[in-house]
Amino acid sequence: MKLIVGLGNPGAKYAGTRHNAGFSVIDELAERHNIKVDTCKHKALIGKGVINGEKVILAMPQTFMNLSGESVRAIMDFYKLTVDDLIVVYDDIDLDVGKIRIREKGSAGGHNGMKNIILHSGSQDFVRVRVGVGKKPEHMDLADHVLSRFSREDLPFMRESCGKACDALEVILSDGAVAAMNRYNG
């Protein structure tokens, strides 16, 4: 069983913001595979299903971004999962809108949600899919940037990157992270 966690902040106020790119990917993946992500458990909205023959738990932590690790740890403990079973999808300001990047492990890279997951999981050796949300404009505070919505010009690229991230997750589940990296990291 694999745990696919999309990072974001709960509530209508944050829907569609750059920081909720992980939630957007989980929403699309769930829709593609008819998985209802509507059960409140372990400080998250979760749904269970099967994608490409692999049992999955799709999760959207409801702890707010900076405490995402609490939810991830609770889910991993309850289902007796290890970091080998964990895939995290999150926003990345160092990637252009429309781009994705897959890694098998790595640091948090300054992302507070990832820092908290690394802290609570005790490892940085888990697969992650980073979704580009674009660099922060010089005149803008980082928090304001990641909590902003996409421009009309960027929205089609964001939808494209959500689709690519879902495609990549499907490849990770069927063929492994390396195959997905070879196909989608450009």
Score class of each variant (00 low, 15 high):
D77W: 05
R159Y: 10
P10K: 00
A180W: 00
E54C: 14
P61Y: 09
A30N: 01
V133S: 01
H33P: 11
E170T: 06
E31P: 06
M114S: 08
G109A: 06
I93F: 05
G122S: 07
K41G: 08
A165W: 02
V131T: 12
G22R: 01
L3K: 00
S24W: 11
D38F: 09
Q62C: 00
S68G: 07
A30I: 02
I172W: 01
A44R: 04
K105H: 13
V50W: 08
N112F: 04
I102M: 10
G176W: 05
H120S: 12
R32D: 06
F78G: 05
K135R: 13
D175M: 09
D92G: 10
A30D: 03
R183L: 14
V133W: 02
H111G: 03
V37N: 10
Y184G: 07
G16S: 06
K55I: 07
L29I: 05
E31A: 14
S107D: 08
I46S: 01
A74H: 02
G98T: 11
E138K: 13
V72F: 03
N34Q: 12
F150N: 06
S151P: 02
V131H: 12
H42E: 11
F78C: 10
E31L: 14
A12R: 14
A12E: 15
V146S: 06
K36I: 13
K13H: 15
K13M: 15
A74L: 08
L29M: 01
D144T: 14
S151F: 03
L169M: 10
I117P: 09
S174V: 00
I117M: 09
N112T: 10
G69Q: 08
H111V: 03
A165E: 06
T39I: 14
K164Q: 02
M1L: 11
V97T: 10
K80A: 12
G176N: 07
R159G: 15
I100V: 12
I93G: 05
G186L: 11
R101A: 01
L173Q: 03
A165S: 11
I26A: 03
F150W: 08
I100A: 07
I26L: 06
Y90T: 11
S71V: 05
M181G: 09
E70M: 07
H139Q: 14
D27Y: 06
D144K: 15
K136D: 13
I35V: 10
A12D: 14
S71W: 01
P61V: 13
V72Y: 05
T39W: 05
P156E: 10
A180I: 00
A143V: 15
D92S: 12
A44G: 12
L81P: 09
Y79V: 04
K115S: 13
K80P: 06
G110M: 15
D84Y: 08
Y184N: 07
L58Q: 03
D154S: 07
S24M: 15
I35C: 00
Y79K: 03
Q124G: 15
V146K: 04
A180Q: 00
N52S: 15
N66G: 07
G186V: 11
G16M: 03
P137K: 08
G132Q: 05
G113Y: 05
E153H: 08
I75W: 03
L147S: 00
F126Q: 02
